[in-house]
Design a protein around this nucleic acid. Sequence first.
DNA 1: AATGAATGAGCATTCATTCAT
DNA 2: TATGAATGAATGCTCATTCAT
Lengths: 196, 196, 196, 196
Amino acid sequence: MAVAKEPKRQRGIARVARLLDAGASVFAEQGYKAATMTEIAARAGAPIGSLYQFFPNKDVLADALVARYAEHVEAALDRIKAQVVDLDGSQLADRLLDVLIAHAAERSLALSLLDARWEQPGVRPGVLRESLRRRIAEILRLWHGKLLEEEAQAMSVVLFQAMKSLVQLHEEKRYPGKAEAIAHWRGWVRRYLTEI
Amino acid sequence: MAVAKEPKRQRGIARVARLLDAGASVFAEQGYKAATMTEIAARAGAPIGSLYQFFPNKDVLADALVARYAEHVEAALDRIKAQVVDLDGSQLADRLLDVLIAHAAERSLALSLLDARWEQPGVRPGVLRESLRRRIAEILRLWHGKLLEEEAQAMSVVLFQAMKSLVQLHEEKRYPGKAEAIAHWRGWVRRYLTEI
Amino acid sequence: MAVAKEPKRQRGIARVARLLDAGASVFAEQGYKAATMTEIAARAGAPIGSLYQFFPNKDVLADALVARYAEHVEAALDRIKAQVVDLDGSQLADRLLDVLIAHAAERSLALSLLDARWEQPGVRPGVLRESLRRRIAEILRLWHGKLLEEEAQAMSVVLFQAMKSLVQLHEEKRYPGKAEAIAHWRGWVRRYLTEI
Amino acid sequence: MAVAKEPKRQRGIARVARLLDAGASVFAEQGYKAATMTEIAARAGAPIGSLYQFFPNKDVLADALVARYAEHVEAALDRIKAQVVDLDGSQLADRLLDVLIAHAAERSLALSLLDARWEQPGVRPGVLRESLRRRIAEILRLWHGKLLEEEAQAMSVVLFQAMKSLVQLHEEKRYPGKAEAIAHWRGWVRRYLTEI
DNA sequence: AATGAATGAGCATTCATTCAT
DNA sequence: TATGAATGAATGCTCATTCAT
């Protein structure tokens, strides 16, 4: 229903950016429910009324953050797509794996926001997931002309899951076997695209 | 600090079980923050005072639920451990993969509870993770006598991540390429343990 | 949806009475929208949480006040009904006119509460009005056996309107012609029931 | 204190008219307190700053609306006054009764605005009421030369109340006995002026 | 003069926890 | 020991009004 209001003047644009950043950090630290609008506004150095001027409620703010993440990842995938014909399997594997790693922090925030706000869990996250998988499938078919639609679909699911898993392996701080495990994982994904 | 009080009488044991079940369902539906102690008590058919008798605060209740999940999974891993010498690589892969799948619902609840309550996310989930990985590493060394401690560690990380990933692939309801993706994934894990 | 919770213990009964009185006075002074739950609780000497214990939201409190008024008026009409056979036209007129006058303050509060809370004004006030008119019609038919249902209905509308009007004439403080106007009005209603 | 600024140019006049209309509709739908200046401006298609240009605060806008109603009704009474010598009692009764009915919507708005904003209810409404009663008394004395000032005053009170009551009988939508009740009421007022 | 972003006190409501009964 | 009414700090959100652009 309600949507974020686009700032029109210079000052508003800067303020919205600060509000989004503040929202990202507070949500990341405390989670959706525990985060308070008051603290978000304070951290952005804005009065609470200004926060509500642009984001008429907490949900809208969370949605804006998720959208920002989605844009970033989609842009990164589009960049790969533009160069995919020049890549071999190992290179493509590495490029894909790096997409989510590059946006790891933003990603875990976006997922937690999506999860936190839906009683039927997974309904909304699914939309984002689908869209990213579809993009990966497109990249695969562009990369390997003979790939059937269905094959590309299944592979996109596997690859996307592998991408997410690698992020988890990366994010967790220091644990025994971390470096080797990451190497195993990357190796597996390279092989998955090489032995095709 | 505070811990759950052990019920002493027959009636107390039954009531604690109902309180835990009610807590599980409310937490699962609404998330940690949004769940209210009042509703949990009501759903268990118990007065709020009784809930606080056994679980002196909300965190203790959540911890008890996580502990219940941990016990179940550890028991399942112990059962594999007891039979591991008779299993080949494919069988071991399947047995491990099925452990988390069998407790998928309980698992997602436990993880969300752990995540929801810690500002530095992942600190507490890590404890659970470590304990399960360690168990997997033990299984691997028992299974394959020549495996070095470090190798077993790295492999346990990869395997545990693969187990979690398969749960995610399973849990997400109907999407294009689901069956094939799951088959790919299982195949990969079998090969991982076969080509050792 | 939500309704007032009935107090069960002695203390609760007293507290609810004080909350209702406080609500009545604050609503009467400031109007529904301008009245604050905080002030109502304070004036009743109760913490805000107690107010919400019994009246889960502002609307429910207002409804309870309207209901209290309705009960009082209905009881007064029922008392007339019980004695109606012994009354002549003038006496019945006076008795009816006095009902609303006796509850004038409560009445204007109830009406303002009903008016303030409904976008389509008059929808809910209508329910109260209907119920009171119906009671008046019953009284008329009991009083004058030969009255047809439809005649009684029309007369109840006229009488009820005349009752409300007299209240307004009364309530307005000092103005030229007040006493005479009231006398005219009473005279008219007496004649209305005498010349039947 | 503050008063509405008179628009000076063509554009201002049109804009003030649209603001007043918007104010009327929003006040009528939501009541004085619940109506927001922002919505009023929006409904008039004007920026909020423009609304405050002409009506420096919410009260001034409400006052302007009441004044607009008063002008309309006073003009209607003046028209009757100009023709009163040619009217018999029944005709005069009907002319008077029709004045308020013709402005019923505006009237209920004006009354709600007057009622809503004054803690001591009736203070301001009284001013309007007095002015209209005085006009009615003038009409009566012009109509019936021998009427004493005091008689005319009392009658103006009764008549004005009867006029308001008829509006209420009219405005309420469909109820049993409506048509007959209205006929009774009109009949009574005619007789009141005929039997003088 | 015209605009609309900025402001922040104030409001309704919630809920974990306590403690009198 | 068992119960559930009592408590009040904390939260999301509103809106009349101002004033920089």
